[in-house]
Simulated scan of single mutants.
Amino acid sequence: MKDDAVVGFWRGLGLPGLIDVHTHFMPERVLAKVWAYFDAPGPLVGRHWPIAYRHAEGERLAVLRGFGVRAFTSMIYPHKPGMAAWLNGWAADFAARTPDCLHTATFFPEPGAGRCVRDALDAGARIFKAHVQVGAYDPGDPLLDEVWGTLADTRTPVVVHCGSGPVPGKHTGPAPVARLLARHPALRLVIAHMGMPEYADFLDLAGRYEGVHLDTTMAFTDFAERAAPFPVAERARLTALGDRILFGSDFPNIPYGYGHALEALTGLGQDEAWLRGVCHDNAARLFGL
């Protein structure tokens, strides 16, 4: 699907637009470093990864809105102590001047992490991002006990990059998340990238915990299928868990056109009701949109 067909896609489903729960807007100097890392490519990328939408912030916003994306996120994530509060301040300002962005925040295992999360919630944060691979931390780190407790109590969704794709990390994989959920079963975790490549294990967790969702970010695309194909045997579970799967794109940091992510979903053999839920309705319900 070419990008100019995106609007026709969601209109054909009878939707008012798309909701994309996994898009990246961050301070320009941070984004520039992220793009440079992809350009290298760095050891956490592992393959050639051209950025498809390398535009200034205003143009990126215009592109998303032109696709008919009516709500999106500003996925930010720290890779060291001392960054989270600063990123959250930027994201609060971005959300204030970008009303179609779901106010996003983040955290890191460091002293004061609990207070940082409470401050972000008080400022209006509606979704958090945790990047276990880039942050190189165990989600069960005791420094995060208060964080997870607060997020569970407030039922605030957290997008977690915890699968071992594109390159495994010390704390990636389903086991650390399973231990976390055993302690905080009420958490609303959104497993980024469908848990790639440990798809089946994360589907298991979604089947066990009603608060666990999965986002489709990069999953099922030609780019992802070459490295980490989704098991055909697990497709039936996509139907069973259809009300907890959310569309995500990784815009702008994707190596293909935005329309291809939607086209990949249409190739899964699911019906239009499933597509409507994934592309809009499930996220609308989760965030009260």
Rank of each mutant, 00 (worst) to 15 (best):
A152E: 15
D4E: 14
H280P: 12
W274K: 02
H193S: 13
K129W: 13
T98G: 05
V278I: 11
V212K: 00
R29Q: 14
A52V: 02
A175I: 12
K33F: 06
D281R: 15
G173N: 11
F107T: 15
L205G: 00
Y209Q: 04
F202D: 01
D4T: 13
A228Y: 14
G288F: 03
D39P: 02
T156G: 00
A95M: 05
V30R: 12
P176T: 02
L143H: 08
R65M: 07
R118P: 00
W274Y: 03
M1E: 06
R235W: 01
Y256Q: 03
R285H: 03
T239K: 12
L61E: 06
M218Q: 07
G46Q: 13
P50L: 03
G135R: 11
L246Q: 02
D250N: 04
V167Y: 10
P78G: 05
A130R: 10
P16T: 14
A175T: 08
L181M: 06
K80Q: 15
T150P: 10
A233C: 10
A178N: 07
F108I: 11
V158S: 03
P99A: 01
E28P: 05
R244F: 03
A182D: 10
L262V: 01
L214K: 02
A85P: 14
F220R: 01
G288P: 00
G257K: 09
R155L: 09
V30K: 11
G89P: 07
G135A: 07
G124N: 12
F128I: 08
A264T: 08
F202E: 04
L31A: 12
G140F: 14
D122W: 10
M26P: 06
A71Y: 12
G82Y: 03
V158G: 00
W86T: 12
A56Y: 00
G42Y: 07
G140L: 15
D119T: 14
L205Y: 00
W274T: 10
K170Q: 13
A5T: 06
G149Y: 14
M1D: 05
K33N: 11
L189S: 05
Y137K: 01
L151W: 14
P174I: 08
G149A: 10
V190D: 00
R54H: 09
W148Q: 06
A227G: 04
A136P: 13
T106W: 11
F108K: 08
M218V: 12
G124S: 09
V21F: 06
L246T: 01
H103T: 11
R115D: 13
L214S: 01
V132T: 15
L265I: 10
A92G: 13
R155E: 09
A136S: 15
D204W: 03
A284Q: 05
R226W: 07
L64I: 01
G46K: 15
H103P: 12
G163F: 09
A206Y: 04
K170S: 08
F220M: 06
V190G: 00
V6T: 09
V232T: 08
F230D: 04
Q270C: 13
F25E: 09
F38I: 09
L64H: 00
H193W: 07
G82P: 05
L265M: 11
P16S: 14
H48G: 10
V190F: 06
A85N: 14
H48D: 13
G42A: 08
R179E: 14
A236Q: 07
H55K: 06
G169Q: 09
F72T: 11
G124K: 07
L13K: 04
